[in-house]
Design a protein around this nucleic acid. Structure first.
Lengths: 149, 149
DNA sequence: TTGCGTGCAAAGGTTTTGCATGGCA
DNA sequence: TGCCATGCAAAACCTTTGCACGCAA
């Protein structure tokens, strides 16, 4: 993997942030604030440039979401380039799951025969609610029941 | 379905554009240009406001793509509010497929037991290649075989 | 020393918002 | 007539880019 050539303070700060947030999505702004605000450890443009590079190197995954008005990134960790599996994501907390492709095998067959659509596992992201967020949601509902705001 | 209350010239122009482009994704800019440029039939802000409303009404589907620097929309046609099924999309041409939820039934079970992720059918979009685009892709490959750029 | 990476500043693009006006029902 | 939708203008926001300087190797 052709990694970056130099190790600089801004880059180290960014990479540290990524490793500290292995299972969450984040935006350029999150990093900017996470490493201590503008001008602290890295400039905004530097962050964008590094994120772009890290994506090309396969360290990060890049995607967009309807309800987030910015490009989202996620550390791909030991999962490398993410070519051999697909992703699931919690709509609530943004946590990403690495799912084996086989899990969609049956559905893929049906989809191809009935609709003609051949799944691209690398690009598909299954959206749902993770266990933790479902529990939280249940608690909220329980609290609400009885009070009509 | 609580549709818009008034029928105005800008809204008609927008809806006509949507119906003329039933199987393609488009952006706010596409509409702006499609209906005759800025100031012709509808203002930019009017387009955004109508698109937003049409999404809430279920007439349109809204999504973002990594390689398109704008929000994409697509006419959901007779499929109404899109609550009772999920969507597939061709990565190449942007065409959207309306898939019955049941198609993922088995996968959903596995996903929940193995990863704890409960699928949100309304938000999940299966990305793939449609039949047409696959044929086109095959032709390209055939043409290329023999010539190394 | 060399050249890459950074900071700074400005620009480009999309999308949102406030307010007064115009038009539909 | 009353109220909603629109147009206009400006702002907010994310992201990209050019250029000169600093710093790692």
């Amino acid at each position: 993997m052709a990694k970056s050539e130099y190790k600089t303070r801004p880059r180290n700060a960014i990479i540290k942030y990524l490793q500290d947030h292995p299972d969450t999505r984040f935006t350029a702004r999150d990093i900017l604030e996470g490493i201590g605000g503008a001008g602290a450890e890295a400039d905004r443009s530097t962050i964008y440039r590094n994120l772009e590079r890290l994506c090309q190197e396969g360290v990060l995954v890049k995607y967009k979401e309807t309800d987030v008005n910015a490009t989202c990134y996620q550390y791909s960790g030991e999962h490398g380039s993410c070519h051999d599996h697909m992703h699931g994501q919690c709509a609530e907390c943004g946590r990403i799951f690495h799912l084996e492709n086989g899990i969609l095998a049956d559905a893929a067959e049906k989809m191809e025969s009935e609709y003609g659509l051949a799944i691209d596992y690398g690009k598909t992201v299954i959206i749902g609610l993770c266990r933790d967020c479902r529990k939280k949601a249940e608690k909220k509902i329980r609290k609400r029941s009885g009070s009509t705001s």
